[in-house]
Design a protein around this nucleic acid. Structure first.
Lengths: 110, 110
DNA sequence: GATCTCGTATAGACAATCGATAGGAGGGCC
DNA sequence: GGCCCTCCTATCGATTGTCTATACGAGATC
């Protein structure tokens, strides 16, 4: 039954959130919509994944949240990247490209 | 404690094993050594990850195991890809490239 | 016959995602 | 005012997959 859509999202969600926030401060659902849009629907981050991740990142000091009003005048928590978060993003991107390169090598061996 | 997480990207181990077996039938530790070698040490699959994965894949019918003697004359279980496994590998590769493309798009947005 | 290596196996801890569910609060409509 | 829809955040429980650590049998070497 279960068609696994994007389980490989595991472990990359943090990086994607940090990247999104590196462009503009956003609130949670804004990030979610942004990722969905950019990836053409490949990543549909559900609230049950998104908010725990945001709390995790804030806990680690990589993002900072602030309550404010959304564009549609709702109460929303806007997050922005901290300096540590920007550094972290760089590390994760580097690690990611290493991993992708390694996997690519495996997949290309004949 | 700053630990560099060498954790394999979740969900990719199955694909890597299938790919390795698509080249040659191998026993468990052989697969592990092969991946380590090809990726230059990026993936060091530990027994605690490898064997559960192999059992999982055999259960699903994607690989088939047979007891035999290893090159060093030990008792070893050689696995080979089934037809279903080959098909599965194709699906996983396609899914993987989709995901990588999507993530790349996110990381490249400015 | 002690010890090393090879190869397989499993138990327990742990982290991250998902599905489901919840609720407050603004906006539009009648 | 009363209703419903959407927006936005939140959390619980289950599931999955990885890790660390430990274990054991058996061939190799001496």
């Amino acid at each position: 039954m279960g068609e696994h859509k994007t389980e490989i999202l595991r472990g990359t969600l943090d990086m994607l959130i940090l990247k999104a926030l590196s462009l503009n401060p956003m609130h949670g659902l804004g990030i979610s919509r942004r990722l969905d849009q950019i990836t053409g629907g490949v990543f549909q981050v559900k609230p049950g994944s998104l908010f725990p991740a945001l709390h995790r990142l804030e806990q680690e000091g990589w993002i900072e949240g602030e309550w404010s009003g959304s564009e549609s005048n709702r109460r929303a928590r806007y997050y922005r990247l901290t300096a540590a978060g920007r550094e972290r993003l760089g590390e994760e991107q580097e690690s990611w490209s290493h991993v992708v390169l390694a996997i690519t090598r495996v997949l290309e061996t004949t």
